[in-house]
Design a protein around this nucleic acid. Structure first.
Lengths: 235, 235
DNA sequence: GCCCGTCTGTGCTCTAACACACATATAGCG
DNA sequence: CGCTATATGTGTGTTAGAGCACAGACGGGC
């Protein structure tokens, strides 16, 4: 019997499958745990598994030639990691890194592809999820162009919060800076302001969201656009 | 008989279909022309057609609440416009605008969805194209975060050039500024430098690429990443 | 050939964010 | 308890780009 955090229904994509399809997949789902910072897959590498997060949060990062990086999307218990496997690409040009430690269920690539090809609810869900992720990526592009670091930090905190069961996030400012593709000092500054305003508190890699609605007031429209699209596509 | 610019094989996605699948689709493809600046579909609107560009180039834009905009992707004769129609979303939260006047072939939504559901080469191609577009979107996010306006202008010119048959692009700096999500003066400045270096020439909404390899030397890595991914997925 | 609308160039100021260089604080370990 | 890694705060330039205000410059229509 799986533990609570590894129940398939802990992943909201799997939870939406009709019972018979889920029954069919269950034997192929295998629990795995991930530590903070772990690399789930490397840019350009072959992937043997697709992952359905239950409690883990995984960032999709692009690594620049000069070593700097920027996040293009994030996946948690609302989705999966390894889209390229059913989209026909086999590999993707980005790295997937654990942003918040936790568990996931994994499925062999071959099984996934066969299930996808059957074309049922499973296929439909994966495609709708992919579209939601595209919205997230494109909105990240817009946000990077037009909004301040502080707004982006709010967006990022809220997106992370929505994929967790707790208001406490374990992540350093350095890590967040890598995700957002900004300097660590920029995060210090923005986080300092949020703390002054009583929206968050943080100490040494431990952020606590104190005032969620305050964050929502401070964030740019990008957060809501992405959230609404996820809600619309994955109900 | 269609004119040259409306031959189905003018669209590289359609050109890759095996003959029998193409024969099957031909009766459902209908030529249309688009003028510069025309809105192909509006954010959130229902779409009756999917479009396969032959000579037209279409930008996918996000419109901010405050009226400013930024491009999240571009589609030309290498792809299609209306991904949401087969991904299951029906509508998307962005606007599609004609960036360069030209022709396309359109197909009714219902026909498209039925063809897609058959799961043959057509489905496979559409999914692979979608993945390529995701790379473009995510790379746009990275580029917006990390690179200068001049680099982005180079990227944008090259991406446009690759979807045309000519080195002459008809577009004002104002228009480009809207696409890139920067000020018009910023484009003037960057374009001025490219002109000084003999890479392009422009006069009143008419840009001529004089030195393609020079542009490729000035562009950031983002262009190559996107191009390589298109080549890889859509061979 | 002239006019007027559209495009492009330029010159300011202002600000967010970068780059670099440290100072300080905290947790966990011996 | 003290040491040291790691995490965070701060200060001083510098810079890219925004915002605004015009000045020219071209070009199609009359």
């Amino acid at each position: 019997m799986s533990q609570s955090s590894l129940e398939p229904v802990e992943n909201r994509l799997l939870a939406r499958l009709p019972e018979e399809e889920l029954e069919h997949l269950l034997p192929h789902l295998e629990p795995v745990s991930f530590a903070l910072g772990e690399v789930v897959y490397e840019s350009g590498g072959q992937q043997s598994y697709i992952y359905f997060p239950t409690t883990v949060i995984i960032s999709l990062l692009y690594m620049m030639e000069n070593g700097s990086s920027a996040e293009m999307g994030v996946a948690g218990n609302d989705g999966l990691v390894g889209i390229a496997l059913f989209m026909g690409g086999d590999t993707v040009p980005n790295r997937a890194v654990v942003q918040s430690a936790g568990d996931a269920l994994r499925m062999k690539t071959k099984v996934l592809q066969d299930e996808f090809a059957r074309g049922g609810t499973f296929q439909r869900l994966l495609l709708r999820y992919t579209q939601a992720l595209m919205t997230q990526m494109s909105q990240t592009a817009v946000c990077n162009r037009l909004h301040t670091v502080e707004q982006q930090l709010c967006r990022w905190l809220l997106l992370s919060r929505d994929r967790l069961n707790t208001d406490e996030l374990v992540m350093t400012q350095e890590l967040i800076a890598n995700m957002l593709g900004v300097r660590r000092e920029g995060v210090t500054h923005a986080a300092g302001r949020l703390q002054e305003n009583g929206l968050i508190s943080y100490v040494r890699g431990r952020i606590i969201i104190l005032d969620r609605s305050g964050l929502e007031a401070a964030v740019c429209e990008c957060y809501r656009v992405v959230k609404d699209e996820y809600d619309r596509l994955l109900v």
